[in-house]
């Protein structure tokens, strides 16, 4: 079943057809979401009432577009803020983790490595509730001891950031470790021989080498945080990130406004992904 082994014509046709069907299946839901963003109707469904830009730029009810819808814009702002925090935090810790596992041998290293992988096999919703439970235990304990109510430990943005950080760090660690393993240690030693201190050697030789992986990890962490639903759902307070805000609207019934938001999301994340690929090619 490789090109060098002759296969019957009908087999090749059926196989090719299957793969084609698969890609149609992949594209179908995303395409309909995109197309109905331009439907001049209150519902993202047939019949097609004509083409309109109103769901993007409309300023009057009943067709208020994305760019005039306060709730959605605020939710986008919240999501960007959370995603930026998560990206910076998880990539920083991911980098130190990668160095730790790559450069040091110590007792308990294997155990720590397995623990580091665990967040990948814990369901997101369980991660969410465990952090919710622990933070409220902490908050209640502080209240009992010092009569102080720490709002930050109640559901809200801090907990959302921590919840997402708790598993995205694992991914950042894996991405950066993979590149660090390919690093030629003799380059660093050369720098040391030439009189650089250890820190200077790492800063001027190793970090630039790691840069593609670090940028890649930042983009992946940002996207994962932006899209995260399960963990966020359990930890969210009054400021809802975009996915939660959209979910609440979707439950009430949908208008093409949601399609317009979705289309912008698709464009945004594909642009980001494309930029990352181009950067890494360079």
């Amino acid at each position: 079943m490789i090109p060098t082994i002759p296969q019957s014509r009908s087999f090749r046709l059926i196989y090719g057809g299957y793969v084609l069907m698969f890609f149609l299946y992949l594209a179908l839901p995303l395409t309909v979401v995109a197309v109905f963003a331009f439907n001049d109707s209150q519902f993202p469904s047939l019949p097609w009432e004509g083409f309109t830009w109103n769901w993007f730029f409309g300023a009057e009810a009943p067709q208020i577009g994305v760019f005039h819808e306060r709730g959605i814009l605020r939710a986008v702002g919240t999501s960007v803020f959370v995603a930026a925090c998560v990206a910076v935090l998880s990539v920083s810790v991911g980098t130190t983790n990668a160095f730790l596992f790559n450069r040091y041998d110590f007792r308990g290293k294997t155990v720590l490595y397995v623990l580091m992988l665990l967040p990948l096999v814990i369901p997101g919703i369980v991660l969410g509730i465990s952090i919710l439970v622990f933070s409220s235990t902490l908050a209640n304990g502080i209240w009992d001891v010092a009569q102080m109510d720490i709002q930050a430990l109640r559901p809200g943005l801090l907990l959302v950031v921590l919840g997402q950080f708790s598993f995205i760090t694992t991914i950042a660690t894996l991405v950066i470790s993979a590149r660090l393993q390919k690093f030629d240690r003799t380059l660093e030693e050369a720098a040391l021989n030439l009189g650089a201190t250890r820190l200077t050697a790492v800063r001027t030789i190793t970090i630039p080498f790691l840069m593609p992986a670090i940028i890649g990890a930042v983009v992946v962490a940002f996207l994962m945080s932006f899209e995260n639903f399960n963990t966020t759902l359990m930890l969210v307070g009054s400021d809802a990130p975009l996915t939660i805000a959209m979910f609440d609207r979707l439950k009430e019934g949908s208008t093409p406004l949601l399609n317009a938001v979705s289309l912008l999301l698709m464009l945004g994340s594909s642009l980001l992904a494309l930029a990352m690929i181009l950067f890494q090619r360079r």
Binding site: P29, V33, S45, T243, S254, S262
Partner: peptide
Amino acid sequence: LLCLIPFYVSELVRTFGWMIL
């Protein structure tokens, strides 16, 4: 790359697409 695209789109959007369909 085509296989990767749906991953870059929020799960909410994918689910919404199936609802429309």
